[in-house]
Structure formats: structure tokens, C-alpha cells
Design a protein around this nucleic acid. Structure first.
Length: 571
RNA sequence: GUCCCCGUAGCUCAGUAGGAUAGAGCGGCUGGUUCCUAACCAGCAGGUCGCAGGUUCGACUCCUGCCGGGGAUACCA
């Protein structure tokens, strides 16, 4: 955790050490002592030792000796080169509860992004195909980043940039015209099959590819029949996707297809040409990037058709023109890293100041049975199928564990979908993921349902809070297990901010796991000793613990929301 | 060939400003439920942090090389 953090206790620790050594607080990292046995927070004196050429242990001893209680810190003790700080327990509880309660629904957020706009390109499937399981990656990472940025005060424009243009649609037109039954109404299922069938057929008969190119050319030229059919393909795809997005709880501010950028492609190429960036190579128009150690960026094929890079350049220009972003995130798998490096370099070379604000938020690929999944290889698991299976498993669990539950179907959806979402967001996004049904459908251990379960337990407990409890004095929260929970709660705003800044949702999911573990340990104390229950006999103590439980519940709900998960009250 | 990512416990992963005995979950073995929801908690076993050098007072973390896995590498996206 950095010195510029918002956690007031960490700040206090850093600023004390800074004042004791005459340095800037930002020079010091505030860490967690191993197992928190020696204190709540620790500061290593290494930076000061380096600056002064002194022994860090001596500096730590000196600083600890000079410590007087302040800002919620009760004591400081040197341990080798570290100073370990222990919170004043009552002040820790009072400070954290006050912050959580005062922030209300905005807890964890900030106004750090106020006045700034971020455009987030996510999900962005190619239409006329199923949403495959791997689409969950861009969709849920992007959705989490959108929510995280909003929580940090940014204006967010979430864009679903549909792949609805290109020679693929020439193939589909040919396939449909060739193989569809008279009067047949297209479905995504059917289109997906036709696409696969076409590719197989084209292997044997190259003439089909030529026809596909011709049909796409007709589509581009505005051929009414081609346009109408394409429009129908697009419509049924969007309807199918809408259902899956609804299941996932995902929405967009803008749904735009590549087709809509058609008119900007020519001008974009001309603009680059006017800047002297376009050269001809083997009949194609390219931006030479050999000086940057990269292959050329192709703008136009030999036959004059534009490419992916052309469209992304035009789209970036459009987005800056219409949304004047301060940050633009492209949540796209790592396989396209070179494309995005080239694209960004072209924007830089063209002299656009916003080129520095665009980021490829890359993520690892999904593999199944050792192979990359994808429509082209036929190694496809449908996202919808995974979600439905998870919901079914959740439904069975509910029947087994909580048969009296009222809204079984609703909760089964929340939990099943939550399990799948959490599974995707629980690791660093850059890691490749192996699709594994057992892990996906596991509801125990470090899983989404574990988080939701902890939330449901707090909610359930809070429903039983007796009337007329006193206000709740934080000074009653003196158990070490309570301190552990409070320490974590105090870190929540920093984690949210860092997750947005690093575009890394797993900073929130791993935080939530830590919080749940700390909460569960605290809660479990009541199984051994009724006096350690939240709702214990002593009304003063119960009142204080209820406040802490409410803070935990609020943080779990908020954290789950930020990563795109539901927080059921019962399960 | 070149470039990028990864390599931490049997499995899946945290550990990311270089700092105190490397932490979880799963799986295995032991315990805990007259219950604020056990979808939980506690304990035990399990590690040459891929290998070899280097920088440093100090390296899982930074640098170099090697090995292993994955990806990318101009007219697909």
C-alpha cells in the first residue's frame, strides 16, 4: 500500500515515520506484519536508511522511542528495521464504522475521477455466432472496470463494439442463399452452423470464397437483398445476446457495429496519408512500423478493402471526437496485443494527443482440454450453457440446504451466475484459464457463492437484531478477530481505487475473499461461546457488533456489485 | 527465426514500490453443528518460489542466459 493511500491508519503510520525521519510520507510503504502478530501495520525504515546512509534498525528504534499516541495509533515498537504500529482498538473501530456509515451507498468510492471520462470497449462479439464461454472474459472484466470507474467518480461510456462487418458476412450471405430453406427465419444457432459449414465447404471449393467476397462487396455497395438479410442476421443476434447480457447483469452505454464506421474508413486512411504515413507494399496500403520493430499496419488490402486496424483507428477518432475521453480501455484478449501495439503507434505517429490515453486491457485466453477455444476450431462451449448449468446446480444446492427459501429461482440465478462470474474475475486477468466444469460449478472454498453466503449470513443475522438496542459503542469491539475485520474494511477504498487504476478486478475479488475469511472466523467464535456471538446477551456489546456486521454486509454488497455480482439476502 | 506472456504446495492460484518464519482454496487426514444459515470454522501433512549466474546489506520480486508451456508474427478479427 502506498503512502498516498486513503486508509487513515496507514497514512498516520507513514506520516509519523516521515516526521520522525524528516522525509516525505510517500517514501514509505505501509505493510502488514506477518500474521499481524507484532502489530496492525508496519513501516520499514529502508528508504530513510538509504537516504541517510544509516542503519535501518537504529532508525526504527529511534522512531519507535519518539512515538507518542496519535491519529488512532496507540503504540509503536521497533522490530529490526521495522516499526510496528498497533491501533487504538476503539479508535480503529470508531474510525472505520464512521467512514462506512457516512459513505452509505458510496462506500469504497471516491471523486478522484470527477470531470474525467473513460471509454471502455468490452464484450464486442462478432454477430451471427453464439456467445461462447470465452466471451465472458471481456464482458465481465469490462463490466467490472465500468463499475469501478463510476465508483471512483469517472464518467463512463461502456461500448459494445459489435463485429458486424467484413467478409464473414459475405460467407453467411452465400451460405444462407445456398442452404437455407425457403422462407426460413434465421437464428443464431442456424447462422453459427452455416458459418462452420461454409468454412468447411470453402476448403474443398475455393470458388465459394470468391463468391463470399463478391457478396460482401454487394453488401458494402448497398445491395437491398444483401442489406435486408444482413440486417436480419444482426437483429436475431442482438436479441440472443441481450438475453445473455441480462443473465449476467451487464449493460452498455453504446452499442455500435463496425458497419457504422464504414463512412469514416476512407477519410481515416486519407488523414493518415496526408500526414505522410501511408505507403504501398505488395499492392496493399500500410503504415510502415519497421522503425518500431513491428510489422506494418495494414490499412487496405490489395483489393482495396479495409481491415480491422482501419476500423479501430476510425473508431478511436470517433470516440475521441464524441466523448473526449481521458482514458480509453480496450478489453480484448492478449492474442491481439500486436494489433493494439501497432494501432496505438499509428495514432501516436499521426500526432493525436489522445494516443497516450488508450490502453489495451489484455487478458489471457480460455483453453479447454488443452486447446484454445474458438469458433474457428469448433472447440466451443456456449456461455449460455455454462450459465444454465451453474444455475441448475445452484438450484439443487438450495433444495438441499435451504428448502424453505422463498425465491428459489431468483437466488439460484444469482448464485449460479455469481459462481461463473467470480470464477472469471478471481485471478489476474492476464492469466490463461483452463475451462474446468468441476471448478466452475464448485460452490465451496474461494468461490463466488462463498462470498454471497457470507453476505447472506450477515443479512440473516441483521434481520434478527432485537429492537431497542443501544447506539453501539465502538470501544466494545476489542476482539482480535474484530480488529482483523476492521483492518480490512479500512483498506477497501484503496483497493477499489487501485483496481480501477490498474484495470484489475481481481484486486477487489481477492479483497472480498480476505474479508469473508476474517468475517467467518469472527462469526464462528459464536459457535464456541455464546458470549462471542454478534447477537450476544450483553446489549451494549451486541449493539457494537451489529454495527460492525452492518459494515461488513455493506462492504460485501458493494464489493460484489463492483465486480458485477448479486448479493442475495438469503440463500 | 523474432517479439510478447507465463513457470510459487499433488491441483488452481495470492504474494506487483526488493524487506521480518513464502500465504489461501481444492484434494488428503483430524476435529467442531442443543446452530446469529456448517455453501462455514479450526488443526495436521504438503514448498530447492523452473534452472544457473548477476546486482544488492537483503531477491519469489530487478538484470542476463538457459529449460519448459502458451500466444503473436501483412492482406481474418
Amino acid at each position: 500500500m502506498r503512502g498516498s493511500m486513503r486508509n487513515p491508519f496507514r497514512r498516520a503510520a507513514a506520516s509519523f515515520v516521515a516526521s520522525a525521519t524528516g522525509m516525505d510520507p510517500s517514501a514509505f510503504a505501509v505493510t502488514d506484519p506477518p500474521g499481524h502478530a507484532a502489530g496492525d501495520w508496519a513501516v520499514g525504515l529502508f528508504p530513510a536508511a538509504k537516504a541517510k546512509g544509516a542503519n535501518p534498525a537504529a532508525l526504527a528504534a529511534e522512531a519507535a522511542a519518539a512515538f507518542t499516541p496519535r491519529d488512532g495509533l496507540a503504540s509503536a515498537a521497533a522490530a529490526g528495521p521495522f516499526v510496528n504500529f498497533t491501533a487504538d482498538r476503539a479508535a480503529l473501530a470508531a474510525g472505520v464504522l464512521r467512514d462506512v456509515e457516512a459513505a452509505g451507498a458510496r462506500w469504497g468510492g471516491s471523486d478522484g475521477g470527477a470531470g474525467r471520462t473513460v471509454v471502455i470497449d468490452f464484450s464486442s462479439p462478432n454477430i451471427a455466432k453464439h456467445l461462447a464461454f470465452h466471451h465472458i472474459r471481456s464482458t465481465m472484466i469490462g463490466n467490472a472496470l465500468a463499475r469501478l470507474h463510476r465508483a471512483c467518480g469517472w464518467k463512463v461510456v461502456g461500448v459494445n463494439h459489435l463485429g458486424d462487418w467484413g467478409t464473414t458476412f459475405g460467407m453467411l450471405l452465400v451460405a444462407w442463399e445456398e442452404w437455407a430453406a425457403p422462407g426460413e427465419v434465421p437464428t443464431v444457432d442456424r447462422l453459427n452452423d452455416l458459418y462452420v459449414r461454409f468454412r468447411a465447404a470453402a476448403k474443398a471449393d475455393p470458388a465459394l470464397d470468391a463468391r463470399a467476397r463478391a457478396r460482401f462487396a454487394a453488401l458494402e455497395a448497398g445491395d437491398p437483398a444483401a442489406r435486408a438479410l444482413w440486417g436480419e442476421f444482426r437483429r436475431v443476434s442482438l436479441e440472443e445476446y441481450r438475453q445473455v447480457y441480462d443473465m449476467l447483469g451487464v449493460s452498455f452505454d453504446l452499442v455500435m457495429g463496425e458497419s457504422e464506421f464504414e463512412e469514416f474508413l476512407g477519410p481515416a486512411v486519407e488523414m493518415l496519408r496526408s500526414k505522410g504515413l501511408v505507403t504501398e507494399s505488395d499492392g496493399a496500403e500500410v503504415v510502415d512500423l519497421s522503425a518500431d520493430g513491428m510489422p506494418p499496419c495494414l490499412l487496405r488490402k490489395g483489393d482495396g478493402a479495409t481491415l480491422y486496424a482501419t476500423r479501430d483507428i476510425a473508431a478511436a477518432l470517433w470516440r475521441y471526437e464524441h466523448h473526449a475521453f481521458d482514458r480509453a480501455l480496450y478489453v480484448v484478449d492478449r492474442g491481439q496485443a500486436l494489433h493494439f501495439r501497432q494501432w496505438r503507434r499509428v495514432l501516436e505517429r499521426a500526432g493525436f494527443p489522445f494516443a497516450a490515453a488508450v490502453e489495451h486491457v489484455d487478458f489471457g485466453q480460455v483453453r479447454f482440454g488443452g486447446f484454445k477455444t474458438g469458433t474457428r476450431t469448433g472447440n466451443v462451449i456456449r456461455l449460455r450453457e455454462v450459465l444454465e448449468e451453474a444455475i441448475a446446480v445452484a438450484r439443487r444446492k438450495i433444495e438441499e440446504k435451504n428448502p424453505g427459501l422463498a425465491a428459489k429461482d431468483l437466488v439460484a440465478r444469482q448464485v449460479g451466475v455469481g459462481a461463473v462470474i467470480f470464477n472469471d474475475l478471481s485471478n489476474q486477468r492476464r492469466r490463461d484459464v483452463d475451462f474446468d466444469w468441476d471448478r466452475m460449478l464448485s460452490f465451496e472454498g474461494d468461490t463466488g457463492p462463498y462470498l454471497q453466503y457470507a453476505h447472506a449470513r450477515t443479512a440473516s443475522m441483521l434481520r434478527r437484531v432485537p429492537a431497542g438496542l443501544p447506539a453501539g459503542d465502538p470501544a466494545r469491539l476489542l476482539l482480535p478477530e474484530e480488529a482483523a475485520v476492521l483492518r480490512l474494511l479500512a483498506d477497501f477504498p484503496d483497493r477499489v481505487e487501485k483496481a480501477a487504476a490498474d484495470a484489475e478486478p481481481c484486486l477487489v475479488t481477492t479483497f472480498l475473499l480476505d474479508l469473508c475469511a476474517a468475517f467467518s472466523r469472527w462469526y464462528d467464535l459464536g459457535n464456541r461461546d455464546p458470549a462471542l456471538k454478534v447477537l450476544c446477551e450483553d446489549r451494549e456489546t451486541a449493539a457494537a457488533r451489529v454495527r460492525l456486521a452492518r459494515a461488513v454486509r455493506a462492504t460485501l454488497e458493494r464489493g460484489l456489485f463492483l465486480v458485477g455480482m448479486e448479493a442475495p439476502e438469503e440463500m
